[in-house]
Design a protein around this nucleic acid. Structure first.
Lengths: 333, 333
DNA sequence: CACAGGACTGCAATCGATTGCAAACTCAAC
DNA sequence: GTTGAGTTTGCAATCGATTGCAGTCCTGTG
């Protein structure tokens, strides 16, 4: 139905080759011919069929984006960033949601890999070996996950946690609880590391209360155990967990931040809307999506680019809202 | 890099034609040949290049999905539904976010149209004429928007509003405020219609407080005007607005639901997490995405299918939480 | 005036897959 | 032992675009 290069050629009175050149290598065709071709293309609303071009050039102008769960507000932000940056370079984005299923993820990735120039895998749940093997077959950029030898855009979890701890210590907290995310989560592990290091530096105590689902319900589940630690502040795996925790604390009549301070991570849109508004470490999610595309495109242009080894590290930023306050004196409760 | 049909043919010792047939019309090839081909394909991890197939068959196995803003929690749900249903039929999904820009939307849609078999336009911001014209060029399914002659999946706004009003009337409310969405919003207009009709039926008063951005901030902005109407209950354009309104009410010390009841629409994930938890009309967002794909696929198979004219209407469901309560007696405040 | 050189443009091959058509083969029946 | 029907398979054309190569035309110089 849509106009082909032949239609344009006919209308402009030239050969298809000339149309192709007029449109993609304007310098080599005569000015008046070029103008005629461009007018014809314009008139017909012609745009080259990417699939056909892809057959010849091996570049389809398409990338794939795989996320674990769009219902988790973290991911739409990343997707939006990918979207925006991809559009700016006129590349289309295939989106796939794996529903947190690592097995489905691998299958999806393999299927997608054949239809795209490159893949962006956001917080992939698959095993390290599988990711490496996929990366050997296609150009892959990881987001929020680090695997030896695979280019990635990650967040500075350690630095973020350091900021959170510094903030809490400044408020007088000396015993801080950590509500971890899923056992297998790469970012949870790294946040824990950063937290422990920072706590040690400041000479304060860090109590880990275990692993919970990275959801509102996970936060509800974690709340009581966090309280039981006797800590005066809690850092949670992410904002969703923090908000769930806040809900449970409210239900139990525990005042935030008076009796307990709460810090999340991510800064999802919901965080400023919670009551009290959540203090959190903002992760530049959209930026991560943009940079992932940037990195992928660079890799595609120059596969041997050294960005392969380094990748990109994005810094977090502490956003202080109302869920953190001066530590309650443990002596007079 | 990936294996082509020729590679498989060579390995299986047959011609490419036979490979093609063995894989997509198994009945016509000899059983032992078929087995040999399938083994070879398996061994090479072969999957046909969809782009190449698309050139011949005119069907690429790809659909496009356009949403106004992924940051609005309504849309990721729809996207998830589209995703899931599309994957079940082995079709890939191009996602595009227009950033609420109607002009960009039209451009994007036109560009996408050439690369896909069909398009799903979710809550499109473009004008009616533009949508009609796009629908003439490609197969299009609308979600959450109705345009004469274009197949669509919509929500029963009228019915949903009827439920909300019935609920409020049962609680004794007699004067109800409506916080509308954007002036040009199709769903806002229809919700208003349903509200007015239901209010008339029940003999209660409906006060429209104007049009606001469909966001948290929009809700904050609307709150004071809603209060000033003297209504004992407010229905808002969507949940995000309701949650913003709740925040402002809390800041002003107006108790919900004691002094004012609040009802949202959508039932986004955030709604059960708000304080108080939001009473709302649940819209089956994910289901809408699934049905849109279903409808699109049906239309693609049989362009003259009568689903073109009818489309699908999805019912809303009132979810009663804590933001609605018995009306305050206006006599003794 | 002939010829070298550059600027344009068209021909034809190519990418990976599908499909109409015809060739090759099998098998049974006469 | 032919013939004819039915199966199975391969050849070759095709989709839309790109690109190496070669041909045409024009211009300037000797």
């Amino acid at each position: 139905m849509p106009a082909t290069i032949r239609d344009v050629a006919r209308l402009a009175g030239v050969s298809p080759s000339t149309v192709s050149r007029a449109l993609s290598m304007p310098a080599v065709v005569n000015a008046v011919t070029r103008a005629r071709v461009q007018a014809a293309a314009e008139q017909l609303g012609y745009a080259p069929n990417r699939a056909a071009r892809g057959l010849i050039t091996g570049r389809t102008g398409t990338i794939g984006l795989v996320v674990p769960d769009l219902a988790n507000p973290f991911f739409p932000s990343v997707v939006k960033g990918v979207q925006a940056r991809a559009r700016a370079s006129d590349v289309a984005v295939f989106l796939a949601d794996t529903d947190e299923d690592a097995t489905a993820e691998v299958g999806l990735v393999r299927a997608l890999a054949k239809q795209v120039d490159g893949l962006i895998l956001c917080s992939p749940r698959a095993g390290q070996d599988e990711l490496v093997s996929v990366a050997q077959e296609t150009t892959v950029v990881l987001v929020n996950r680090l695997v030896e030898g695979v280019p990635a855009v990650t967040f500075d979890n350690e630095g973020g946690m350091r900021q959170a701890i510094a903030h809490l210590v400044a408020l007088g907290h000396r015993r801080i609880a950590w509500v971890g995310g899923p056992q297998t989560s790469w970012s949870s592990a790294h946040r824990s590391l950063g937290l422990n290091a920072a706590a040690a530096e400041h000479g304060v105590e860090l109590v880990e209360v275990g692993h919970f689902a990275p959801t509102y319900d996970g936060g509800m589940a974690a709340a009581d155990q966090a309280v039981a630690t006797g800590a005066t502040a809690v850092v949670t795996y992410n904002d969703l967990v923090a908000i769930g925790l806040l809900a449970r604390l409210h239900a139990r009549g525990i005042a935030v931040p008076e009796a307990l301070s709460v810090v999340g991570i991510d800064d999802i849109a919901m965080s400023r809307m919670s009551r009290p508004a959540l203090t959190t470490v903002r992760l530049p999610k959209q930026k991560a999506g943009e940079m992932a595309v940037e990195l992928l495109l660079a890799l595609l242009d120059d596969p041997d680019s050294d960005s392969r080894t380094q990748g990109q590290l994005l810094l977090g930023e502490l956003i202080v809202r109302d869920s953190t306050g001066v530590a309650q004196d443990p002596a007079r409760p």
